[in-house]
Nucleic acid binder design. Structure first.
Lengths: 236, 236
DNA sequence: GAGTGGTCTAGACCACTGC
DNA sequence: CAGTGGTCTAGACCACTCC
């Protein structure tokens, strides 16, 4: 129960996602919310700012704050979200197949991506994601060994993130995603349900820790027909 | 010179982009910045928060704020950025060809995207974007007529946004982007320098005004080999 | 004019890093 | 320990909307 503004934020998100606050609804004013939650107005404003940043509400000067239409969870949504969270929100049956899990030295290409040397050991995990009965995504994760606790096949079959997050010494701070469209590799064709797609969507994900060090490089290779990326952006 | 925190933000962005503040540099502490800019710490914090959100700096509790590595302007970058701004930042020669400009009733498909009726007139602009001598993007913009001042061919050849922004009654507030990969249409093949690419990257952009109304729907169709989308995300 | 959100202040206490 | 960023407060004034 630390953090009043996060508590307010999560409370309101819950109300919106569960439909107790419908789109177009006007929220109580900031002064009222401050009274309701027994805090100051600036603290309420921090919570509302977060809601606004994440596309839940919209504020209009002189009028109030309004719930936005369906904050639809599309596939893969902007931001840092794990596959498991996504699958859950999409209400689809999903499965993860671990193809390999190795503690090894990185290939030169991966070392370059991770901005490290080929003699710095990494965990390499290759997984296939199945949704609605089809193998659609090939995930190749690489973690600096010294930054994370040891991995097992069981962990990789569940969610690496749910395992890692609470156990990391340094918290995850930010990530950069780069999306491109490329020629499929033999691997893509072999491990995904392919059907002759001529291209593959590659999402390269670089994840940084609290201390500003890069510790993870992941290549997510998506079958193009099932790929969908949604981005919500506010104007500054 | 309204808005102290925005002034500070822009000042620091400028220093970072011009290389006067190098990556890894430690910024002055929040208290020092407050003194420097003659304002309060919370106001400085608002500016730093913006810098952090946009990937310019990274804050570490107990240590300080540090300039992040190259805020690289990739193509098309996350957020709301116009083609002209992008081309400028990429230092490439670019050209815009206006294929058509009509005041018309929308096709049913577009009316649905804009959440309006087929009898609500719209401006429809079709443009081809050329970069480094190649025609790479086909842009189809649709604006609700009643929401914007009249367009001309000259405006469309320059930047619609630079024309619109200062002239809109209601300011632009947020936008939603959806990226998918699809089969190319005959139009794509006809108007872009094609070279037999088997798929096209479609970016659908929905832009909303201050009053929470949708006023623009744009389809940007990108040649897959030249497409690149970068997203920066912080963990909450 | 009353109510709204947007900005700003001057202080406070905390948890964390570094020495 | 002093210095840092993270949170929070209680007030203030402004620009805007609605009546």
């Amino acid at each position: 129960m630390d953090n009043i503004y996060l508590t307010i934020y999560h409370d309101l998100v819950k109300q919106i996602e569960e439909g107790r606050l419908l789109p177009e609804t006007k929220l109580p004013s900031e002064n009222e919310l401050a009274k309701i939650y027994g805090t100051s107005r600036e603290t309420v404003r921090k919570a509302l700012h977060l809601l606004s940043q994440n596309g839940y509400i919209h504020k209009i000067k002189g009028k109030g704050s309004f719930v936005l239409h369906v904050h639809k969870l599309d596939f893969p949504v902007s931001g840092l979200v794990s596959f498991k969270e996504l699958a859950r929100k999409m209400d689809k049956e999903s499965k993860t197949h671990v193809l390999s899990l190795d503690l090894t030295d990185p290939e030169p290409y991966v070392a370059r991506q991770l901005n490290t040397s080929t003699s710095e050991p990494i965990w390499k995990v290759v997984r296939v994601r199945e949704i609605g009965g089809e193998k659609i995504i090939l995930d190749k994760d690489h973690f600096l060994k010294h930054a994370i606790p040891p991995l097992t096949r069981e962990i990789c079959e569940d969610s690496i993130y749910e395992y890692l997050e609470p156990r990391l010494e340094n918290k995850i701070s930010f990530a950069k995603k780069v999306i491109t469209v490329e020629e499929p590799s033999a691997e893509d064709r072999r491990y995904l349900d392919w059907r002759d797609f001529p291209m593959i969507v590659v999402v390269r994900n670089y994840v940084y820790l609290d201390d500003n060090t890069l510790f993870q490089y992941t290549e997510s290779r998506h079958r193009p027909d099932k790929f969908r990326f949604v981005d919500f952006a506010r104007r500054h």
